[in-house]
Nucleic acid binder design. Structure first.
Lengths: 252, 252
DNA sequence: ACTAGACCCTGACGTTACGTGAGGGTCAAG
DNA sequence: CTTGACCCTCACGTAACGTCAGGGTCTAGT
């Protein structure tokens, strides 16, 4: 038996009304309902709520959050990493704002008038839209993509296991190529990158070379991704990223 | 001739519609209007807009911002210092959120379920309401206070000069007492603190001992305030704060 | 002087994400 | 059975604008 709306609200992050609202819009529905209509939220529901709240904190609209999280390829770990990056960016912006306050104080004390642009450039600096774009690229939004969503919805447990195994096989092959000293722009490494791209392209969504390069960059930039690959072999994340870049360059 | 709504909007922080809205609600009205009705914003208008945007960024509602900034004792420097403090607090909360993301990632990798409370305690941690309360105490909201607002509105330039001279005289007297080695809880120091409190009480708003202590704490905590007093004499901010505390204690 | 384009104005409906309250049912303890 | 705490759905209201309609103003070019 899960938690009632009151119990979830008592955790301090959302109100009962908010939970009703999220249920009504399909963003977060309880996994159980009593015959009397009571909502009961389980552990997975709370995990989903936390994810929603991170996105909300970062300025995403609820519809957009729902769209992102409803995606079949939505991966909680990847989302957390994206969110982490956004939070860091936002914290950086706050630092800039503190600097801006200090600049304003300085100008006051000197009896100076600040330049118009300098006064306001710090506002709006953090723009979730940029990240929405990235999330969209990562989890897609085109009609062709939506088609692949439908396709992925039909995947069985075995299908998903196959996906996972394929991904692991490619990762191991990358580690092997690297271990044999093959340059990231060697034919073999680039073929692996191409295979990697095609897996995504066939299994999930259209993955252009450009998008692939973006993913490669993310693998290096996000510490947890980097660790994922580097656990196969130290430096592998960078190697994969380089191979992806070389592959994209090969494709023109 | 000032800037049009389009020119202000082009600075990137607000839209034309927002400027219309702020004018409509009396939050920020242009200092000039053409015979055709065009709005023209001057330097002071832009400074006010910046202040509005800092408060907005920090989560204050527009009505609340208007109320604070319409106060006769509203002081731009003090506001900037408050805003700075709030921004730092908010940045701290973001740090906690980043930690929370890391905790969630850890839990995922270990296949563990996080404690409910731990999952959500970071949300809502930054609460502008606390600071609104402080702003309200600083710039008041009671009926008696409103009365003193009306009173202050009638102050002439000479009155304000007198206020400023009185404040400076007390600051110098504090510095003198400290220089003569009088403890902060000596009768003379406490009398100065009382005089300071009464100045505020008579001139602006009811200033209880409790509120006075809060102000004293602020004088030490905010670097610019601290510097204001310490420029009279090193360590004076702390001395004034201690004298205020001792005075409050004396009053029971 | 006329025209076109950029920008201004006021007015008003719509959007987003809930807050608040009405009216009534459910559950558990006394 | 009663009471109090909590649940439900429904629906109007709020805050802060976004968007659009309809029309005026200003400036440069013709």
């Amino acid at each position: 038996m899960g938690r009632t709306v009151g119990e979830v609200a008592a955790l301090g992050a959302v109100s009962v009304r908010t939970l009703h609202h999220y249920d009504a819009i399909g963003l977060l529905s309880p996994s159980e309902r009593s015959p009397a209509g009571y909502r009961f939220y389980g552990d997975a529901d709370l995990e989903r709520l936390q994810q929603v709240l991170f996105f909300r904190e970062l300025g995403f609209g609820l519809a957009e959050i729902g769209r992102i999280m409803s995606d079949a390829t939505f991966d909680r770990l990847e989302a957390l990493l994206l969110q982490r990056r956004m939070l860091e960016e936002k914290a950086r912006q706050l630092g800039h704002m503190i600097d801006a306050v200090d600049d304003a104080v300085d100008a006051m004390e000197k009896g100076e008038v600040m330049d118009d642009k300098d006064m306001f450039e710090v506002f709006g600096e953090f723009d979730p839209k940029q990240y929405e774009q990235e999330a969209r690229e990562r989890w897609g939004s085109t009609d062709a993509y939506k088609e692949s969503v439908e396709r992925a919805k039909k995947y069985t447990k075995d299908d998903w296991k196959q996906v996972k195994d394929d991904q692991e096989r490619v990762s191991l092959a990358f580690a092997d190529a690297m271990g044999r000293g093959l340059p990231a722009d060697s034919r073999e490494a680039m073929d692996l990158a191409e295979e990697h791209r095609l897996q995504i392209d066939r299994r999930f969504y259209p993955c252009s070379h450009q998008m692939h390069v973006g993913l490669g960059t993310m693998y290096v930039a996000d510490p947890r991704f980097a660790r994922h690959y580097d656990d196969f072999r130290p430096g592998l994340a960078q190697y994969v990223c380089d191979a992806i870049r070389a592959n994209a360059k090969r494709a023109g």
